[in-house]
Design a protein around this nucleic acid. Structure first.
Lengths: 333, 333
DNA sequence: CTGTTAGCGCCTTCAA
DNA sequence: TTGAAGGCGCTAACAG
């Protein structure tokens, strides 16, 4: 038999399952002698408690669902790591789902996670649509958004984020200070909140510096390396009308860098390049990347902490936790 | 009430829970009319099946445990991605545990995963000790090792790996063909099977080329970037006795590269550098890295597939699945 | 100090 | 075509 149960132990010791349960859970109301006998036998028989049964009884699974767009993305991986670290300390397990930035996948992931009766969810929402998140809230499930959020007028939820208007403004201001006036912005899809905010930050920085906004310098793309590559490749077919590039993310910046290199353009001499996120390897790139640091690990940790509060019943209106970002100047600007 | 149960539906419709269950599971032996009523009401009431209860009854959780040393490591992240991809297609969920290359953490992770009654486990073992894996096998749990394995004389288990003796030999041979004779090998900890094999491959390549082995050119370190940095840093305090470096992994190579750069040594002009793994960003490094490609994504996918076979009951003696590696020549050699 | 009973939510006999 | 009973493994309430 693969798993021994308290029933097996009870039979063996000659007591009731209740008594076994008591011994196993260090309850009082049991004689030290029986307890000892039970514990010893349990060990000898290789007993492992069944958390599924326990969960059914207690209607809590000590499990949280993590819904993320891509764990192999160097921006998201440390977030998951941060979650896992704190979660483990608190006795929680993580069920992981990759959505691949696809709404349908996200929706299905949420459904199956609910079926598993996770105690709560940590979500990096796809945002191309968000009916599923609305449903989640309506059903009364506990969840916290990480790194992306919805306008509170649209949908109020807990979230742990950064102020990307500020972060992007910082980045663009840095470029402006370096003397750049024509800054190509290769943004992510603007239905994603962080892309929306970074666009706002881009505009704000220009405005504050008294530089006229040229809408034709704004591109909307994806969040992958390849998106940056593709967009820059196309851009370079035309006469160059910019001296610097602000990329949505370091990943996008890497793709951009590749396209630039293929066109024999030097960074930063010919074109300055600014990323976002400060992924681990940003300093190891061909040209170490100037970027805005996102507190990735912390986003994960704080996300879990907030969720935990909700789980243990700490209530209150939806909360926005804003973590600080920071400019990191390297060689690409 | 947060979750509605079949009991709630039964009461509402005025039938037994059995009938509800039948409707929900599309069993026959139920009139289309009742079935329709039930299904409609279930939807209206927002019914979501309870996979925990179902799992208890069925004693299968459709969940597999993934025990890995660090998901934010660019070598392991794609492995997890590969697992998740196939697992989701087959209706399985992943419970994720980071061990941080720590045996005790691994041991505890395995225990709690067993408590959760996962249907099987996919493990990148720490290997500094392996009593926990022995226990796992003794208990009859289903698991497959990924990327690392034990000598079959020591412990026979399923595993999906690469032939790293071969891979390393390939790498070192490449260096030899470039004219290098004094190749510093910055290896990982040799209790890890891949490090052991790569060392064997290093030796074999030298032997086959008729180059005398100089043990003093072999270093045993860790698997992180910082290990490569630290070791090379120390190495450079002494007179240089090598013209090329073979690093245990791309990550280690990146650390090495950093130390080299700080010493104003050019790669590959002053020192050639060879990595291992071919992590996604290897081609984007300051000096694009020559390396041996590990089929990361495939390791994950094949790992799950093999595990699945065991789960559905396909038996047979422990199986070693060997995936091919490939030399990728870039600029660092 | 120990046992009996009951129930978490679901599904599978077996009987009607 | 439907339902009653029982049980997956565990624990809490209530007796004794």
């Amino acid at each position: 038999m693969l798993h021994v149960t308290i029933k097996d132990i009870a039979r063996e010791v000659g007591v009731s399952t209740t008594t076994v349960s008591r011994a196993l859970n260090n309850k009082d109301a049991i004689s030290p002698a029986t307890s000892k006998r039970i514990l010893e036998l349990a060990k000898k028989m290789g007993y492992t408690p069944n958390a599924v049964a326990r969960g059914l009884k207690a209607s809590t699974s000590k499990t949280i669902g993590v819904v993320i767009t891509d764990i192999s993305d160097p921006f998201f991986a440390p977030i998951v790591r941060g979650i896992e670290k704190v979660a483990r300390q608190e006795g929680y397990h993580l069920i992981l789902s990759d959505t691949d930035e696809d709404y349908q996948t996200e929706k299905e992931a949420l459904e199956t996670l609910i079926e598993r009766r996770v105690d709560g969810l940590l979500i990096v929402p796809v945002q191309s649509s968000f009916q599923d998140i609305v449903e989640l809230k309506k059903k009364g499930l506990l969840f916290v958004l990480i790194g992306r959020h919805f306008d509170f007028e649209l949908l109020e939820t807990d979230c742990v984020c950064t102020d990307d208007v500020e972060g992007a403004a910082l980045a663009v201001t840095h470029l402006l200070e370096r003397g750049h006036r024509r800054i190509l912005f290769i943004n992510g899809p603007t239905y994603v909140s962080s892309a929306k905010e970074r666009l706002a930050g881009y505009k704000r920085a220009l405005f504050e510096a008294g530089v006229k906004l040229d809408e034709s310098l704004i591109r909307e793309g994806g969040i992958k390396m390849d998106d940056g590559y593709r967009i820059m490749k196309k851009e370079l077919e035309k006469p160059r009308r910019f001296t610097a590039v602000f990329a949505y993310s370091d990943f996008v910046a890497m793709g951009t860098m590749k396209a630039l290199k293929e066109a024999n353009l030097k960074v930063p001499q010919d074109v300055a390049l600014m990323g976002y996120d400060d992924i681990d390897i940003a300093s190891f790139l061909e040209v170490p990347l100037t970027t805005t640091r996102m507190p990735k690990y912390e986003l994960g940790m704080e996300g879990f902490k907030l969720l935990k509060k909700r789980i243990v019943g700490e209530v209150g209106s939806p909360q926005k936790v804003i973590l600080p970002t920071k400019l990191v100047v390297r060689k690409s600007t």
